[in-house]
């Protein structure tokens, strides 16, 4: 009875169901229209990796192929959101956010605050993130900390197909701007996903695995690696608890502190660069609010402070590995 689908299909299904439910939900982006079997000019890609394949023919009035101008259509989506639509803008690679930062940081994120709570901006900006795709420095970044830093934005980075569908539907129904980051290396990963629409609330971490010895906090692609690390640790008799944050803003710090209260040991894993990262944020919060529970220094496992290398062998070393996570956990067990 399990219905196993990929994370890519989970994104497609969430968009499909929400566009069916609510005609004010629209999609904008580069090459998002069309799909296999579509005639003439419609025979496009369904997104650069085919995520929106088949949606145009179901929702022709809700899908808008845009010019190659991120600053224009991200701005247009934010404007449309203030005027009553629920746009989902697809930014292809999150690395392209640079040219639309004013629209995102200075406009969308500020409207509710600057208009005294009277304005709402129900826009979702979807984009692929993360390394491991052999896409080099300008298409591989993990920019979660950049958005998490800005009040007024909600930031989501799911680790699996089930969470992806529920969090994306929640993002579309949410009345605030949501940055929805899909790790491109996870698109093929599969999970049991209900066919019916459902939502997962923001700010609730998922306890992926329970364990009493060390807490591993992470999100996105690193959840899988943390699980591999936990398997390695188990062979040494170390039981790791894995917390998948799911959303970085809001963030479920309570679950982290509760877990550390039990384990006394913390490993923060982040695919982002180390400075001002999600890992650094968690570490600082636990050091402040959970210091008495700690039995060992907090460990951070992150990418190095460098661009993502194009060389495949270097890129593989760049991304935090299960081994490095396990090593960090063992370090907390010393002494």
């Amino acid at each position: 009875m399990a219905r196993i689908i990929s994370m890519k299909d989970a994104v497609n299904e969430a968009l499909d169901q929400e566009m069916s439910r609510d005609p004010t939900v629209i999609m904008m982006g580069e090459d998002i229209v069309g799909g296999s079997g579509a005639p003439g000019e419609d025979d496009a890609w369904g997104g650069v990796l085919g995520v929106s394949k088949g949606l145009y023919h179901k929702h022709p009035k809700q899908m808008l192929d845009t010019p190659l101008s991120e600053s224009a259509y991200v701005g247009a989506a934010i404007g449309a959101a203030t005027a009553g639509l629920r746009p989902v803008a697809e930014l292809m690679f999150v690395d392209f956010i640079g040219v639309c930062l004013d629209q995102v940081f200075n406009q969308a994120a500020k409207f509710r605050y600057m208009f005294g709570g009277k304005a709402q901006t129900p826009v979702v900006i979807r984009a692929m993130c993360g390394a491991g795709f052999r896409a080099a420095a300008q298409h591989s970044q993990m920019l979660t900390p950049l958005f998490t830093h800005i009040p007024g934005l909600k930031v989501v980075c799911p680790s699996n197909a089930y969470d992806t569908k529920g969090l994306l539907i929640q993002a579309i129904r949410d009345n605030d701007p949501v940055i929805f980051l899909e790790h491109k290396n996870l698109y093929a990963s599969t999970a049991d996903v209900p066919e019916e629409p459902y939502t997962i609330p923001f700010g609730e971490a998922n306890i992926v695995r329970e364990g009493g010895d060390v807490t591993i906090v992470t999100y996105g692609q690193m959840v899988q690696r943390a699980e591999q690390a936990a398997d390695m640790l188990k062979k040494d008799g170390i039981e790791a608890e894995i917390i998948d944050l799911r959303t970085l803003s809001p963030i479920d710090m309570d679950s982290v502190l509760e877990s550390v209260e039990m384990t006394g040991r913390l490993v923060c894993v982040d695919e982002a660069n180390p400075r001002c990262s999600i890992a650094a944020d968690i570490a600082a919060n636990v050091a402040q609010d959970g210091f008495d529970d700690l039995k060992a220094p907090i460990q951070m496992v992150t990418a190095p402070h460098s661009p993502v290398p194009f060389s495949p062998s270097l890129e593989d070393i760049y991304i935090p590995s299960a081994q490095s996570i396990a090593d960090a956990a063992r370090k907390t067990m010393e002494g």
Partner: peptide
């Protein structure tokens, strides 16, 4: 708990 939450969170 997770299975019940999955059920409770379905639309409707």
């Amino acid at each position: 708990v997770q299975d019940l939450l999955k059920y409770k969170r379905l639309d409707g």
